[in-house]
Nucleic acid binder design. Structure first.
Lengths: 146, 146
DNA sequence: CAATACTTGAGTAATTTACATGGTTATTGT
DNA sequence: ACAATAACCATGTAAATTACTCAAGTATTG
């Protein structure tokens, strides 16, 4: 779980598409203008978003990107994970015996927290963000430690 | 709201202290050895953690750091915020009129998400992490959009 | 007074971020 | 067929951030 401005750019772009895709596919040029993100950077991001099957593309005039699924089937977690690489929680492997040590305990606890945060973001869909009406309490009831 | 490996280091270090501070203050050298973080980097992080009043320090032999409050009064949110600077959600100010535009709408939605995420991490205390028994459902009931 | 350990600061290699540039391929309308 | 469009692809890079080294200073203990 990692959360940087890169993830913000991705989520922002996905929001832009979700809001405008009624009239057909959205070009990256349009998103670039509207959101103030460089075209080149958007290309990088959308290569990953496509690889993660969150958007589909159409070439040529009238082409662009659209969501590959309905907005309530796309979670914020998926978007973040598509573009932001994961924080390596264990560099334990190596000389140090890190099976029962203090080190691994802390790492384990961090991994728990990371999983918890991910579950949280899995419960928030792109659509619910747009609607501003995702009752988080309802969705959160399922989240527990493994 | 920002979340990088820097935040992970901070949380890990705080966990280390919480687990060991019974016998008195914990030195950064110890944390450095146990967690595999460089002393110099820990010094940077703990300067901020102290500034945020999450730890208190004692100099000289037998000195070190301890939590400035009980572990269940320190939230993960506080730790993260102490070391990780906030993502600038609005670069809208400038030439573009960004009061009602698409741009500001996306930014507003991101800010909502950010706030939601923060509320979530506010509900998780250092202690509950250690206990692995923070029923998130109970805590989450309060979280709603503004 | 010597050892400890926090405090402070300057400097730096490595990585990541965000962008620029210059192409190529596929699709559309004329 | 032929432009125009827009996704795709690759390389390069300035700026920022990360995580660290090194070197001093200051407060506390025994």
């Amino acid at each position: 779980m990692k959360l940087t401005s890169k993830g913000r750019y991705a989520v922002t772009a996905m929001i832009d598409i979700a809001l405008n895709q009624n009239n057909g596919p959205i070009t990256l040029s349009l998103i670039s203008e509207r959101q103030g993100i460089s075209l080149s950077y958007l290309e990088q991001l959308f290569a990953k978003l496509k690889k993660a099957d969150l958007v589909s593309s159409a070439r040529g005039p009238g082409g662009g990107y659209r969501l590959s699924r309905s907005a309530d089937e796309i979670s914020i977690s998926q978007i973040i994970h598509a573009v932001d690489e994961i924080i390596d929680a264990q560099k334990c492997g190596g000389k140090v015996n890190c099976q029962a040590g203090e080190k691994c305990l802390s790492h384990e606890l961090w991994r728990d927290l990371s999983a918890l945060m991910d579950s949280f973001l899995k419960g928030i869909s792109l659509q619910s963000l747009l609607d501003k009406e995702h009752g988080s309490a309802k969705e959160m009831k399922e989240i527990k430690f493994g």
